[in-house]
C-alpha cells in the first residue's frame, strides 16, 4: 500500500497546520497518570472486581456508585434485583443519600459523587475510602425523592430518576457549601471560609465544583495573608489545563498579594 504523506508534510494551509499542531502539543495535565494509578489501585483493592458505575452511567457524571450485575439485567430486575432495589431505596430514604449499597452485593462504596476518582483523596494524604462515613446529612429533597420512588413499584424505571435526583441533590449541596465559603471570603472572614472549604473537601473529595473550591481556597490564602502559600497554589492552578477558565480570576487574586 502506498503510504500517503501527512497533511502537515504536504503543504497544509496555515490554519490547518495550526490546528493539527495544537493537537500534537496536547497532553494530559501533570499528575493525571498518577491519579489514575491511585484510582485504579483503589478500585482493585476496594472492590475486588466490580466496576463502580451503574449500567446507566454517563461519562463524567457518575450517577451512582452501585455496580449493577448483568444477572440483574438478564432477569429484568427479577426477584433478586427487586430486593436490591428495595435496599437501595431504603438506604436512600434512611438518609444514605447518594451512597447506596450495591445491588450485586459488592461492598465498595466510594464517597459521595466521587465515582472512580475517589482514591485521589488517598493520594492527597487525606482519608481513605473506607473512612468516609456512609451516613450523611439527609438532603430533604433526596429523602422525599427516595420516599416517592419507594411508593412506586420496584420497576427498572424507578432507579434512573432516583439517581438523577441524587445527583441534583449532590450538586445543590456542593453549591450551598461553596456559597457559604464565598460569602465568608467576601465578608473577609477567612476562618469561616476555611471551615466551609474543609467541609466541602471532606464531603466532596472529587466534587463537580472542585475547581471553584480550589480558587476559593486561593482567595482564603490571599485574605489570610499567606502569600507564599497563595503563590504556590496559584502556580499549580495556572499550570493545570482544568483551571484555564479561572486564569483571570487567579491572576487577579495573585495581584492582591502584590505579585
Amino acid at each position: 500500500m502506498n503510504e500517503p504523506c501527512r497533511l502537515l508534510e504536504q503543504g497544509a494551509t496555515e490554519v490547518e497546520r495550526a490546528l493539527l499542531d495544537s493537537a500534537r502539543a496536547d497532553g494530559p495535565p501533570d499528575g493525571a497518570a498518577r491519579r489514575m494509578l491511585f484510582a485504579l489501585e483503589g478500585l482493585s483493592a476496594g472492590s475486588g472486581g466490580p466496576f463502580p458505575w451503574g449500567a446507566g452511567h454517563e461519562l463524567g457524571h457518575p450517577v451512582s456508585s452501585a455496580p449493577v450485575s448483568m444477572a440483574a439485567h438478564s432477569l429484568k430486575l427479577g426477584a433478586l434485583a427487586k430486593v436490591g432495589l428495595v435496599t437501595l431505596v431504603g438506604v436512600g430514604a434512611l438518609g444514605g443519600g447518594v451512597l447506596v449499597q450495591s445491588i450485586s452485593g459488592h461492598g465498595s462504596l466510594p464517597s459521595e459523587n466521587s465515582g472512580a476518582r475517589a482514591p485521589l483523596m488517598q493520594e492527597e494524604g487525606s482519608r481513605g475510602m473506607s473512612e468516609i462515613p456512609l451516613q450523611r446529612e439527609p438532603p430533604p429533597a433526596a429523602a422525599a425523592s427516595a420516599a416517592n420512588a419507594s411508593a412506586r413499584d420496584g420497576s427498572e424505571t424507578a432507579s434512573r430518576p432516583q439517581r438523577a435526583n441524587a445527583l441534583d441533590e449532590s450538586l445543590r449541596a456542593e453549591v450551598r457549601i461553596l456559597d457559604l465559603a464565598r460569602a465568608a471570603v467576601d465578608a473577609r472572614n477567612p476562618a469561616a471560609a476555611q471551615r466551609a472549604l474543609a467541609t466541602y473537601a471532606r464531603r466532596f473529595p472529587q466534587g463537580h465544583l472542585k475547581p471553584e473550591a480550589m480558587v476559593l481556597q486561593l482567595a482564603v490564602l490571599v485574605r489570610q495573608g499567606s502569600r507564599a502559600a497563595a503563590r504556590s497554589l496559584a502556580e499549580q492552578l495556572l499550570a493545570s489545563q482544568s483551571y484555564k477558565a479561572y486564569e483571570y480570576r487567579i491572576r487577579s487574586l495573585l495581584r492582591e498579594t502584590g505579585e
Binding site: A23, P28, M36, W53, L59, A116, S242
Partner: peptide
C-alpha cells in the same frame, strides 16, 4: 496514558470529562 488521553480528546470527549473517560478505558 498520554496516548489514551489524546485519543479520547480527539475523539470528542471534552477536557472536563476526559479524565473520567480515560479511567474507564484503563
Amino acid at each position: 496514558h498520554a496516548f489514551v488521553w489524546r485519543a479520547l480528546r480527539r475523539l470528542g470527549v471534552p477536557d472536563c470529562d476526559v479524565e473520567d473517560a480515560s479511567q474507564q478505558v484503563f
